[in-house]
């Protein structure tokens, strides 16, 4: 599965960067979302993808039986998902405010601070 994921993640990254390079401010936000998802997936899948062995300890045991999926990348990604959501909501609202005030969708017209 990992090689397939590698290709998929590459496409996600490419899509994210393409969108972030657009001048339209809304597309920049979409690029941001794609990028955070791509990065999360990258961390998750490079750690090795294990089927059907979640990192849980059964009741009454002190350690899981057999090999389980690596819990540390999962913890990292979990944090990252939530942070990415925070960033996204902030960015979306910021873009909306900027649009309300500047009335410009084009990033090139936003480059002066005294607009």
């Amino acid at each position: 599965m990992e090689p397939l994921m590698a290709v998929a993640i590459g496409i996600l990254f490419a899509a994210a960067i393409y969108m972030m390079l657009r001048r339209s401010i809304v597309k920049l936000v979409i690029g941001l979302m794609l990028l955070s998802n791509a990065a999360n997936l990258l961390i998750f899948s490079t750690a090795g993808m294990v089927r059907g062995a979640p990192p849980l300890v059964a009741q009454g045991l002190t350690a899981p039986e057999g090999v389980v999926a690596d819990p540390l990348p999962q913890a990292l990604v979990l944090t990252a998902i939530v942070i990415a959501f925070g960033v996204l909501s902030f960015a979306v609202v910021l873009v909306r405010r900027a649009w309300e005030i500047v009335r410009a969708d084009d990033l090139d017209r936003m480059k002066d601070t005294d607009t």
């Binding site: 993640i9 590459g10 496409i11 996600l12 990254f13 490419a14 960067i17 490079t46």
Partner: peptide
């Protein structure tokens, strides 16, 4: 932009494969 994006995406794929 498409060229830049594709290059970076391809690099990520290669990077992950080599990892």
């Amino acid at each position: 932009d498409l060229v830049v994006a594709t290059l970076v995406g391809g690099m990520v794929t290669l990077l992950m494969l080599s990892v």
